[in-house]
Amino acid sequence: MDLIEIFQQVINGLSRGAIYALIAVGFAIIVNVLKFSNFAHGGVLGISAYAGYLASSQFNLSFIPVVLIGMVTGAIVAVLVEFIAFRWIRMQKGQLVYFFVTSVTMLMLLEQILVIRFGSFFDTYPYDLIKVKFINIGELSISVTYLISLAVTIVAFGLLIYVFKKTKIGIAIRAASNDMTTTSLMGINTGMVIIAAFVVSGMMGGISGVLFGISTSLSPQIGQVVVKGFIASVLGGLGSLTGVAVAAVALGLIEVFLVSTIGSGYSPVVIFALMIAFLLLRPQGFAGVSFTDKA
């Protein structure tokens, strides 16, 4: 590989990693607040990806409205999921494992809804959604789709940081992530905080769904990409969204690099090996937040 090619791969990897980071952060927000792996996030992502697809193919909307529609759909579906799958269990103070079980059930259910509406074929976003395909700088030709995903991700992260640092509801979500009981003792309505967390997480999921759909292709199984979020959120370390985002970008880079060197076939084997090596070297995750059970 020459330098140009490596640079090209880095750009591809970063944009793939950026989408993974969006997925992973949306996933990790719920992990932090409710302490379980919310695989239904994949369903949210899938539905939003198709909502964006309908908006662009049926109504010929342009890129930005499509992303916004994906975002709003994501928020709505995420709240619906919370109502259907988690609310009752939460009210009955059920164990965390039940959230996990209902969340995977929701993922399957949402997937099948897509199968009924769109059939189990592959669809693609309209070709002219993004007019210019490549920018050429010297020998380098950079995919505009990738650059745009990168840009949208950065904007989305900017907004997320603003929400978490400056707004009341963002601070409440962070507080609830830290300690739900104390948060409720401080007089904060935790029910509202949880819904807010699902809204924020759903918006992230919606954006990532649309971007992932544009940069690859659409199938009802698109939601299963949520496992990238799962991987990144575990590797990233407990409670650190930055760590999760870093892990997700690293995962994207490694995947793109592996595909261009050894091909997509054996790359899960290498990723498995890397995963184990990483966990043995840094059991506390990327962010380095160590965790001890207090006796």
Binding site: F230, F272, M275
Partner: peptide
């Protein structure tokens, strides 16, 4: 949760194989 992750990775690796 690392157990879930490692077994997941193992499963993917086996299928790739």
């Amino acid at each position: 949760d690392f157990f879930a992750l490692v077994t997941f990775g193992f499963g993917q690796a086996v299928i790739a194989f």
